[in-house]
Design a binder for these strands. Structure first.
Length: 414
DNA sequence: TATCCACTGGAATATGTGGTCG
DNA sequence: CGACCACATATTCCAGTGGATA
């Protein structure tokens, strides 16, 4: 009997498919890079840097292009003795105010161990610290604020930075902001004065089409996979699926990686269309589960309530009052104080925004009035799996939930 | 066409948490 | 310690809303 068997290596270097991989060459973005490069020219000439605003959906090369150009810029600037270029990269994900972004910038610029805490200081004190740090660094400083739309409508920092010199907050340092956003509407919600300065140069990154994605995937897969393990139709399929959806290279690369990973785990010799299709389903499910994990406890209770209503035979979709009645019981049985109706309503709206719930508007006029009806907007299996892993549902019977759902054919029994 | 139902959702305000500073 | 700060969440209050019906 054979105990050990040689497995087939699928990947040569899987890191090439990862999010943080920085390719030697950026594919399919020649025009954008050309434009982008031109906007950096003043920096090399020793002038005040321009503020630049990049926008485009996720996975269309904004961040990769930025990191690529900035690393070249820093390197090329070293050839000039009178030039001192520093870049600071900050991802603003979850930083929902100017204050938080400022705190994170200060910490980014400070030595390890010298960081400040995220609350407690007056706003102006943090801004002063920021000016001090920027002055200490001096020279030309390019601040990249990725996913800047998280900052919402509190844009005072974006107003202050470009004006720091004329307000005598900065003397030595020349600061330029590079704002990156997924959401073009963000621009419109800015204060007009901020929009003027921040968006003085802007570049749009369009989604990739199928052919572009195919080229990108071919270049990457040549490095990532062992020779000959990809069957012919894998790259075209990943490209086509991603192109149909959002035109995101990120998505196409994730799909390719996941397909390879599945093949590896199954001990298969090659990656086939079949793996890609499975990978897609797995990624979708995982994405739903991820999005549900960072919700608040009352979001989870709300979600549990609706799931329970779905599984235990309530007529779907359900109205708010029905949800609320059940929710009160659920909250009590898990040692939570039930929230007021208005708050539950807010949680329902949040879940709708996240696509986890669906909401239908109904209006029965004088006799019935206007109201919403809610139901789950995502795969029931994914919801039950997530709820099962949560601490708050400890004394709720998620096993019975799943068993009942399976019995009713709402979930596959696998 | 005015009415009226059963909500919705904005705004002001309150509460609780985790922090600085003198 | 007490005064103060930022922020996430809740609560309270209530002016709309849109369409079936009298």
């Amino acid at each position: 009997m054979t105990v050990f068997e040689r497995t087939h290596a699928i990947f040569d270097d899987e890191d090439v498919l990862r999010d943080d991989y920085q390719p030697e060459r950026i594919e399919e973005r020649d025009e954008e890079l050309e434009e982008y490069k031109a906007y950096f020219q003043p920096v090399i000439n020793g002038k005040q840097p321009r503020n630049i605003f990049l926008y485009g959906k996720t996975g269309v090369g904004k961040t990769v292009a930025t990191k690529y150009l900035l690393s070249h810029l820093e390197r090329d600037a070293e050839r000039y003795d009178d030039l001192d270029v520093t870049t600071v990269y900050l991802n603003c994900e979850h930083l929902t105010s100017s204050y938080r972004v400022a705190v994170n910038l200060v910490n980014e610029l400070r030595e390890e161990g010298e960081e400040i805490s995220t609350t407690g200081y007056p706003r102006d004190a943090v801004y002063d610290m920021l000016w001090t740090e920027l002055e200490t660094v001096g020279g030309t400083i390019l601040v990249v604020l990725d996913e800047i739309d998280y900052i919402g409508d509190d844009d005072s920092l974006l107003y202050q930075i470009p004006r720091a010199r004329s307000n005598e907050n900065l003397h030595e340092a020349k600061v330029g902001i590079i704002g990156i956003s997924n959401d073009f509407k963000f621009r419109e919600q800015l204060d007009p004065r901020v929009e003027d300065t921040l968006c003085e140069r802007e570049i749009h990154f369009p989604p990739y089409d199928g052919n572009e994605l195919r080229n990108i995937l071919e270049k990457r897969s040549a490095l990532a996979f062992e020779d000959g393990v990809l069957s012919e139709d894998v790259v075209p399929l990943c490209s086509a699926l991603a192109a149909q959806d959002r035109g995101s290279a990120r998505q196409a690369l994730d799909l390719l990686f996941e397909a390879g990973d599945l093949a590896r785990r199954n001990g298969d010799e090659s990656v086939t269309e079949h793996h890609v299709r499975n990978a897609r389903a797995r990624l979708e499910k995982r994405q739903i589960e991820e999005s549900m994990k960072d919700l608040t406890s009352h979001d989870h209770l709300t979600l549990y309530t609706i799931t329970a209503l779905t599984v235990f035979g309530e007529e779907m979709p359900v109205r708010r009052q029905t949800i609320y009645d059940r929710y009160e019981d659920v909250a009590m049985s898990t040692d939570h104080d039930p929230l007021a109706m208005r708050s539950l309503h807010a949680h329902l709206s949040d879940l709708v925004m996240l696509g986890i719930l669906e909401r239908h508007e109904r209006n029965e006029g004088r006799s019935g009035g206007a109201y919403y009806e809610y139901e789950l907007g995502v795969d029931l299996d994914a919801v039950v799996t997530t709820l099962d892993g949560l601490a708050i549902t400890g004394n709720l019977d998620t096993d019975r939930l799943r068993a009942t759902a399976v019995r009713q054919g709402l979930i596959d029994s696998s």
